[in-house]
Design a protein around this nucleic acid. Structure first.
Lengths: 337, 337
DNA sequence: CAAAAAACTGGAAGCGCTTCCAGTACGTGC
DNA sequence: GCACGTACTGGAAGCGCTTCCAGTTTTTTG
């Protein structure tokens, strides 16, 4: 209580003075650098604990030219996109990877014009040492912003039109293929696909997984309709598909939200799932376990994705040259297929 | 492409030199300070744009003793708690409030021991100007950490054992009361409650809302069972309640996740919702719209909560003295009651 | 035991920006 | 024409820490 709250923090000079050494020596001690005799080191350590000294992050940053901050920017077209639990999971992973470093995480929602400007400003004012980018759309301005800043950059998910760079991504292609193959193994042949937002790599890869699995089985894609990853769009797509292809016996939706929408429409149209129509989603979000029936889907290791992106960035910051990473996905069988 | 990426950023000195003025004058220009003649101001502005000068955030921070960073720390007992979409929504709000400032958001998951230590280190090294704390449990160490740092601090949700401080919170009491009153208005009298984690204010307030609404209607709390806000615990609580009070005709669950669990158990036990048992949840999370039947629940303005917390902190940083805020909640009628 | 190598030491020069303060230049009112 | 208030100016002293470098001390080595 009587901790003299507004008291100025002690500085390195004061520590040095109290320990009877030069500021240089004191600095060496707090940085664990060599060239300090045992005696002085101990004197400094004592002074540090006596004074309760803590180095100023800002001053260190100015002197070393590194902020010990990394920025995670979320693009997307809607700021509210971040409400998607997906990002929370990613951040848990990021945070885990940061646990035993002294780096901190700056979060930038960069969907809006203002958000992008703020992100740009953060980088240009040299407010971070490295960057992680997620949810990029086609030619996302964030990519240019990051490049111009010249900071180490890691992508979460492959950028659609990507020059060779560093990224971590789930195996969207493989997952979609597995999902489709599973549907085929169930004896379904009139398998429709509800695809995602056109200008994203996720969509493209999941779509490719679907078509190639079909081709491998000697089938042709039965029907397709695009959505935008929202439940609403999934419902709309399902409605459209039922109208044009009433005979369909299975649906592969490019994500769980759309699958949930499809499920709802199927139920309303009187079909039973999975008997009349089998449905498989993608992502394994919380919602998947709560649809009716529970959704069979492709699980992707979201938290690992965050962790791996971060590790990759840490490696880059350490001057290493890590390689891109594709994380495995896994089929989760529930009631819908 | 040929942008000479590794080129050092120009400094204020270079700007001043090029404009033929003192560094002082140049500084005044970039800070929009008075005492600069029109001519010099323009000269400096020209130099700035010629050179593409951007001030260094770090240097400014060191000189002004403010970082222009605010920290949002999430407590809780499980790091994975952050995967809850709740926080994503909060952050969308926070981010919105930050849009036209040049403050940036540092995110700290401080559930683990390490996380707390990192948070403490961030504050003690003076890495942020202000703090927002969320998801605190009983005697959360984060409170002490923040107090010792002596930084302006805003709480999201009232701290349970709270000295008078600044906070923004949803009207948990009022919401719970509304929910219960609604159940009563439906003619239910044997209304059970599934409560949340014991040492949180949220739980306490929602529980109080329930009991007081019952009391107002001349009823006594019919039955109660505690959960921990997870779906699993909701299911367990429901199972227990059915065993001890098979006659119950309604359930008020302290959050949607638990309500979803309860719904699942009710269905399995053969009761129909809402006919046999009416259920009301709290939060209006995404899951609420997808349970079977869709969950009637209390909506709380999560995004607004984030926005208001941030505004409050901004006010504190500006030297003002805002007052605590309780945000209204609202009953959302869906199928379960 | 002298010379060479290795290990310390601390003064001083930054890192890039802000701001106090002593001046200087002008515009007013009489 | 003079005293005085007002608006600019920029030198210099920080903000708190790192690090180069010249020099000193200690240890090794032949």
């Amino acid at each position: 209580m009587a901790t003299n709250a507004p008291r100025r923090q002690p500085t390195l000079d004061e520590v040095a003075k109290r320990a009877g050494v030069s500021r240089t020596a004191a600095s060496r001690v707090i940085n664990n650098a060599p060239h300090v005799s045992r005696a002085k080191r101990e004197a400094v350590e004592r002074a540090i604990s006596d004074l309760g000294y803590i180095p100023s992050r800002t001053a260190q940053a100015l002197a070393t030219q590194k902020t010990n901050v990394i920025a995670l920017a979320i693009a997307g077209d809607d700021p509210a996109l971040f409400a998607d639990p997906f990002f929370g999971r990613v951040i848990v992973g990021v945070s885990a990877a940061l646990e035993d470093t002294d780096l901190h995480l700056m979060l930038c929602l960069a969907a809006s014009e203002r958000g992008q400007a703020r992100f740009r400003s953060l980088l240009r004012t040299r407010g971070a040492d490295g960057v992680m980018l997620m949810a990029l759309r086609g030619e996302d301005p964030l990519v240019r912003i990051a490049r111009q800043a010249g900071l180490p950059t890691v992508f979460g998910g492959r950028p659609l039109r990507g020059e060779p760079s560093w990224y971590a991504d789930a195996d969207n292609y493989g997952g979609a293929r597995t999902a489709t193959e599973y549907l085929i193994s169930l004896g379904r042949t009139r398998i429709a696909a509800i695809t995602g937002l056109a200008d994203t790599d996720v969509s493209e890869a999941r779509h490719r997984g679907y078509t190639e699995a079909m081709a491998m089985a000697g089938l042709v894609p039965y029907a397709e309709h695009a959505g935008d990853f929202t439940e609403h769009s999934g419902a709309a797509a399902m409605t459209a598909l039922l109208a044009t292809h009433p005979q369909l016996d299975a649906v592969f939706a490019a994500n769980d939200n759309m699958a949930a929408g499809a499920l709802r429409v199927l139920r309303q149209s009187g079909r039973t799932v999975p008997d009349d129509v089998a449905v498989v989603g993608f992502d394994d979000l919380a919602i998947a376990a709560h649809t009716d029936p529970p959704l069979t889907t492709i699980h992707q290791p979201i938290q690992d994705l965050g962790r791996e992106m971060t590790r990759m960035l840490l490696a880059l910051l350490a001057g290493q040259s890590p390689s891109p990473l594709i994380l495995p996905t896994k089929l989760i069988k529930r009631g819908s297929a």
